[in-house]
Design a protein around this nucleic acid. Structure first.
Length: 764
DNA sequence: GGCCCACGGGG
DNA sequence: GGGTACGTGGGCC
């Protein structure tokens, strides 16, 4: 039968089994069972064979030749049920490799199976166990035939009031919509299980379901002694835990947590510095959600149930549409890297690149290097941070008619052009690439592994980009090429990651050095050509012409010239033109660590980067003022921007703002007694305790700084206990309103003092 | 300036 | 799958 693989796991309950989950060509759910013979590799050593034969856990060994660090060596391939345990027994005798791979990963690599490909499975099949078909594989063959039917995607959202789940909504891509609410939590939980059973989705989409929805569902079903039935095989929710995060797995389905994906792999392409469902949906879908405080939500539950149901439904609909939008990217990453969509959608750049390399290495008869041990990781962490990209400090002020250039995939193209790969460093050969400013040289006689892999990703991307022009499925192709860009860009991050198998401080240093060399060269060339370079950072430069002539024509001409001189596959692109722009240094004096700018194009559309007065420890008033100031300044309304600041300051002074606008919300990270020092959190926790209210770890509260004597924390009070007459106007003006506005206005040359009323004299 | 603690998403 | 994410900012002393 035809089978398309979505997900897989390993179970050793009876015999070592790999379970493959997916659908047939009609979209019905399928589980494929296959056996696996786990193994690992050990360096060949004299007398080792005899010792291995004494270990009863080892089933058999094979002598084999494998390539490591560019050289062929002899290894024992040791078959045993638990590679990690057997490796412990012999690790002092010889170095072992690939003993900690997850066995479903091992299986997919060895069989050469990539997720979302079509397979032809032969073997006895049956119905049941939650699947339309269960098949015991006797033969698996790859096939080109088969069209992926639309997988059924269901988005889910829950609402929690006073620690209990009172509502949930679900929406799927075939039009199913459901909101259910009840005072009876058991009824809600049972309804959720029923929905999963009846709708039977292939993909479950959530927004932060890993850390919130499924965590709460798990806790509350235990509290209510109800077994949640979400998976296909009847198993409970499974949490794959790591030190600081957790992923919720629903066996037989793919749980895609859009927050996990967006915050790890998409943050670079989003303007937003925050990854709330609202901000992310606004940017990707062009529509968002109403912002509702916790108090309002509780109030809605009491008085406006219907409105709350609409709110809940909207969250599911946004999540569903985000999933539909981003699925191509996730699937492409999965197809190319060979990792499961569940894993791909939760990986960091470094892990993504590493897994891609592990698979490609196996396909080339290579053994992947081992990840470093703890002491080595610590040593790597302690190294001097690598000198990063070159930054040319921004010129102050509001600029007009700006052209933006950037190097197309700077680090990947450097890696390919100069053959940057760990095993090519300083080896003996005929021709070298010498790293500018360093003693490093990379062999130029033959291709290195990492650089060749990056090259093949870029080539694949190039092919897709060429197809886009006349294609019907432009959007899909565009998403494909973009995910390849993500994968290529991930390699530099992997070089720096101390835990990575192909970690290389020297390769990272070299990539950065070449990057600096070529951006500086581009800046020089741009200046020679007659541009004023107003700002440059790592891979992009922002230019204007002194006499504001036709920048578009000059920019295109410049581009042609510079690209003719760039080596290898390096290329400078024209990113766009903007009619107004400003660049914001991080501090008043000192360095700029991160790109921070605001640009406005011909259509009046504003692009913001790096302006982060959006955290929840800033009050709403400060956040909205910063946005307004940016807009006004870019529109050339400097006077109005200053007026907006003055008006806000006046409003605060005259106590004309609502407590909501100046309340700052925060979360207790421990319980009242556990704080070592006096701070806002410990003071509020104590106050909550005195009132007999919950002040446990995780409690969220909003507070206001009251006027009076004492430190900030002495004067912090729960928002609901304060009125307009209580807040400390000076604190809000000096610590919230002015800093937020000043971030922007300092680039126009203002001093913080000047933002106050008397500084506005400039405009009479 | 050093230390402590918080921020992120969700409700 | 991960040997206290992680980079940064405010308040206190």
């Amino acid at each position: 039968m035809k089978f398309c693989l979505f997900d897989a796991d390993y179970s050793s309950s009876e015999k070592p089994n790999v379970r493959l989950f997916g659908t047939d060509d009609k979209g019905n759910s399928v589980m494929v069972l296959d056996s696996i013979e786990p193994y690992f590799y050990a360096f060949c050593k004299k007398g080792l064979k005899a010792e291995l034969e004494k270990i009863k856990e080892i089933k058999r060994t094979e002598l084999t030749k494998k390539i490591i660090n560019g050289r062929e060596k002899s290894f024992y391939k040791i078959y045993c049920e638990r590679p990690a345990e057997v490796r412990e027994m012999i690790k002092d005798r010889t170095e072992c490799f690939e003993y900690s791979l997850n066995l479903y990963k091992r299986y997919l690599i060895d069989k050469g199976i990539y997720p979302l490909e079509w397979l032809d499975i032969k073997g006895p099949s049956r119905k049941g166990e939650g699947f339309a078909t269960v098949i015991e594989a006797e033969r698996i063959k790859k096939t080109k035939n088969g069209i992926l039917g639309q997988p059924k995607i269901m988005a889910l959202d829950i609402e929690v009031i006073d620690g209990r789940i009172v509502m949930f909504s679900a929406a799927d891509n075939i039009g199913y919509r459901e909101v259910f609410s009840s005072e009876d939590e058991k009824a809600v939980l049972e309804k959720i299980s029923r929905t999963f059973l009846e709708r039977d989705p292939d993909i479950v989409a959530t927004y932060n379901g890993d850390l919130f929805d499924f965590d709460i569902l798990n806790q509350r079903s235990q509290a209510n002694k109800i077994k949640l039935m979400l998976s296909r095989d009847g198993s409970s929710l499974y949490f794959r835990k790591s030190m600081w995060t957790s992923s919720a797995k629903i066996k037989g389905r793919i749980h895609i947590d859009l927050f996990a994906f967006v915050s790890r792999l998409m943050f670079q392409q989003l303007q937003s510095e925050v990854f709330t469902l609202d901000e992310v949906s606004r940017e990707i879908l062009g529509r968002g959600k109403e912002s509702i405080s916790l108090e309002e939500l509780a109030n809605m539950w009491k008085n406006k149930r219907k409105l709350m149901e609409d709110y809940c439904m909207n969250d599911s609909l946004l999540t569903l549409d985000l999933c539909k939008n981003l699925l191509t990217q996730i699937f492409t990453l999965s197809r190319v890297s060979g990792q499961l969509p569940f894993d791909c959608s939760r990986m960091t750049f470094g892990a993504l690149s590493e897994w891609y390399l592990i698979r490609k290495a196996a396909e080339r008869n290579m053994i992947s290097p081992n990840p470093a041990h703890y002491a080595e990781i610590q040593r790597r962490r302690a190294k001097v941070p690598i000198k990063g990209g070159y930054v040319k400090e921004p010129m102050k002020g509001l600029h007009s008619n700006i052209g933006v250039f950037d190097f197309r995939s700077l680090y990947p193209s450097v890696i390919v052009t100069f053959n940057i790969s760990p095993e090519m460093l300083n080896i003996k050969c005929k021709k070298y690439n010498h790293v500018p400013g360093f003693r490093y040289k990379f062999c130029a006689d033959k291709k290195g592994f990492v650089s060749e892999m990056v090259e093949s990703i870029l080539e694949e991307r190039g092919k897709i980009r060429k197809k886009i022009k006349n294609a019907k499925n432009r959007k899909e192709l565009d998403e494909q090429q973009f995910s390849l860009k993500i994968l290529a860009n991930a390699t530099y991050g992997m070089f720096i990651n101390p835990k990575a198998r192909w970690y290389s401080y020297e390769c990272a240093e070299s990539s950065a050095a070449y990057g600096r060399h070529y951006i500086k060269q581009a800046i020089d060339e741009a200046e020679k050509y007659g541009f004023l370079v107003i700002y440059a950072d790592t891979d992009s430069l922002f230019v204007k012409l002194a006499d504001e002539k036709d920048i578009k024509k000059s920019a295109k001409d410049f581009l042609k010239k510079i690209n003719a001189s760039l080596p290898g596959i390096m290329e400078l692109d024209l990113q766009g033109f903007y009619i107004k722009g400003m660049f914001i240094p991080q501090k008043l004096e000192g360095y700029t660590a991160k790109k921070r700018y605001a640009l406005m194009d011909e259509k009046g559309i504003i692009t913001l980067r790096g302006l982060e007065a959006v955290r929840r420890d800033w009050c709403d008033l400060a956040k909205s003022l910063q946005r307004e100031v940016i807009r006004l300044v870019l529109e050339g309304k400097e006077k109005e921007a200053l007026e907006a600041v003055r008006t806000t300051v006046k409003k605060v002074k005259n106590r004309q703002v609502d407590i909501d606008e100046i309340a700052i919300s925060t979360q207790l990270s421990r319980s009242a007694g556990q704080y070592k020092t006096k701070n806002i959190h410990s003071v509020i926790a104590r106050k909550l305790n005195e009132e007999g209210k919950a002040a446990a770890e995780g409690t969220i509260f909003s507070y206001v700084i009251k006027k009076g004597a004492g430190s900030i924390s002495d004067r912090a009070e729960l928002a609901y206990k304060t009125g307009k007459d209580d807040y400390d106007a000076d604190y809000y003006i000096n610590n919230q309103i002015l800093p937020a506005a000043f971030r922007i206005l300092q680039t126009l040359g203002y001093k913080q003092q000047e933002l106050l009323a008397n500084g506005l004299k400039r405009f009479g």
